[in-house]
Nucleic acid binder design. Structure first.
Length: 489
RNA sequence: GGCUCCAUGGUCAAGUGGUUAAGACAUCGCCCUUUCACGGCGGUAACUCGGGUUCGAAUCCCGAUGGAGUCACCA
């Protein structure tokens, strides 16, 4: 009987969630849910200085919107709480376990000052590197007791031997062996009494019964330190799944600090939750049947972490945009209007049928803000060059255009119903009777009512939206423009 | 620089010893169309290199090269 799978997402509340984190959360969720397991949320707020107001709310909101619903967390007690590390600090959990390690000789008190640590620093290729020299490991028990009693600030460090190697197993990468000499004596408990991420993570994953640790590839090189911790405690190690990195176009790790978009930024830029989740799921994994469009339940069903790619993936905004466009096309009316109408209102203040403008745009946009630059001509006819009336392929020029518009005008003045159907019937009838090509009629007409070489929709749709009065006004202006041009020749 | 990981078109990504090396995005061309978009059809484009193992290697091994990650009282 297999143990019930438990995974967790353990963010630190430092702001918005960037897509790398989102993908890690998603994979953790999928791994658990694929097997009917539990997905927990744990807040890792052990860094007092990096706390950001409201960041926890962002985490809740993001998980909610993306559908990654946790089974246990600060707001849903599953019996292994608290689920916020600062609260666990208050319960003395980490200190208790750290002292256990000190007693076993697996960790030790360190009283080194910032200045001394600074002197250990060396620079390699512009990067600052500090390797602790185990100075305090050699303190006598008396010295340690005296230091503690005098209230001297201290940290607790892991004691890693300088000889031998440590091996851990990752589901994707296999066995990875690292020389122990490479493993720094990392700090377990900071001088403010809080644990470091490294320590709290191991303790909590164990205490919360996490079976599969899902995290980013950037933790691969510190993983052996965690293994040593598990061994020091005598605890069973979880299954590790290190997800490949998501990078920018220069193949650098995506990070908040370099100003890469967060999930919330993307939503603000007009992307849909489902599209972002869908796209991000495909960065490092693909379904067997090759169908790229997957809902969250479908992902749960099809996801197999053994098939996650090992190499990093470039975040391709162009493909995300395409996928978002596909999602927009498939949106039902109501939901689409909800997002599209506010965009349209940014540009159109006149009393026009906004839903019709929205309908016109649905198959033409990839993100919602794409709407704005395309519909300005509805609000106001732009100044345009009469040369637009000349189009070789349409077999039309300013002379033909002028003639067509002039003969169209009285007919259109008589018509009251400016619906697409009626206009089409009217115009096709005219075209047939005039002996002209369709393009020779509709091209000039569309230019006149839009002033643009390319528009969403054709002349019928535009005129329906503009209505009779405005359409006629624009046609008259077109005629005037063409006559003016003719006169100046 | 040490350590570790990675290596199929510009990008994502199938492929686990024998394939004409899938598919998607992008790109280019054609068709459809009153323009644009949608849609349809088609094209260009890849196994980093060098050694092995094997009848046979994108696939296994070694090396080189390249890229990335990491080396905090941050997570």
């Amino acid at each position: 009987m297999m143990k019930r799978i438990r995974t967790r997402y353990a963010p630190s509340p430092t702001g918005r969630m960037h897509v790398g984190n989102l993908r890690t959360a998603l994979y953790a969720y999928l791994i658990a849910k694929h097997e009917g397991g539990d997905f927990l949320l744990r807040i890792e707020d052990t860094d007092q200085e990096r706390q950001v107001e409201g960041a926890v709310e962002i985490i809740y909101r993001t998980l909610q919107k993306t559908g990654l619903i946790h089974d246990e967390g600060p707001d849903k007690d599953g019996g292994v709480g608290p689920y916020v590390q600062s609260e666990r600090v208050c319960e003395g959990i980490y200190m208790k376990y750290a002292k256990q390690l000190v007693e076993k000789g697996e960790a030790y008190y360190c009283f080194c000052t910032k200045e001394r640590l600074e002197s250990l620093k060396q620079t390699l290729e512009g990067k600052e590197i500090t390797v602790y020299d185990k100075h305090c490991l050699h303190l006598s028990p008396e010295e340690i007791r005296a230091n503690l009693e005098s209230g001297m600030p201290y940290v607790i460090r892991q004691n890693t031997p300088n000889e031998g190697t440590t091996t851990f197993h990752d589901e994707l990468y296999g066995d990875i062996t690292v020389p122990n000499a490479e493993l720094d004596d990392m700090i377990l408990i900071k001088s403010d009494g809080f644990p470091t991420y490294n320590f709290a993570n191991v303790v909590d994953d164990h205490l919360m019964g996490i079976t599969h640790v899902v995290r980013g590839n950037e933790y691969l090189s510190s993983a052996p330190k965690y293994t040593r911790l598990y061994q020091a405690f005598g605890w069973e190690e979880p299954v590790y799944v290190h997800c490949p990195l998501i990078t920018d176009e220069f193949k650098k790790k995506l990070s908040k600090r370099s100003g890469h978009s967060s999930y919330e930024d993307l939503i603000e830029q007009g992307f849909l939750d489902e599209a972002v989740v869908n796209y991000v799921a495909l960065l490092g994994w693909s379904p067997e049947d090759n169908d790229e469009f997957l809902t969250l339940p479908e992902l749960v069903e099809k996801f197999d972490y053994r098939k996650i790619n090992k190499s990093p993936a470039v975040f391709d905004m162009v493909k995300l945009r395409w996928m978002n466009g596909e999602y927009i096309k498939k949106m039902d009316r109501e939901r689409y209007y909800e997002r599209a109408l506010p965009e349209i209102r940014k540009v159109v203040s006149k009393d026009l049928p906004l839903e019709k403008i929205a309908d016109l745009m649905q198959s033409r946009i990839e993100t919602f803000p794409d709407i704005c630059p395309a519909i300005g001509f509805f609000e106001e006819l732009p100044e345009y060059d009469p040369a637009l009336y000349t189009h070789k392929k349409m077999k039309t020029d300013s002379e033909i255009s002028l003639a067509v518009l002039k003969s169209l005008l009285p007919m259109l003045e008589k018509e009251e119903n400016y619906s697409v159907e009626i206009l089409r019937a009217l115009l096709t009838g005219f075209t047939a009777g005039s002996g002209r090509k369709t393009g020779q009629v509709l091209w000039p007409l569309r230019i006149a009512v839009s002033g643009l070489a390319s528009t969403p929709g054709g002349a019928y749709e535009i005129m329906e939206i503009l209505g009779k009065e405005e359409s006629l006004e624009r046609i008259r202006r077109g005629i005037a423009l063409l006559e003016q041009q003719k006169a100046s020749e």
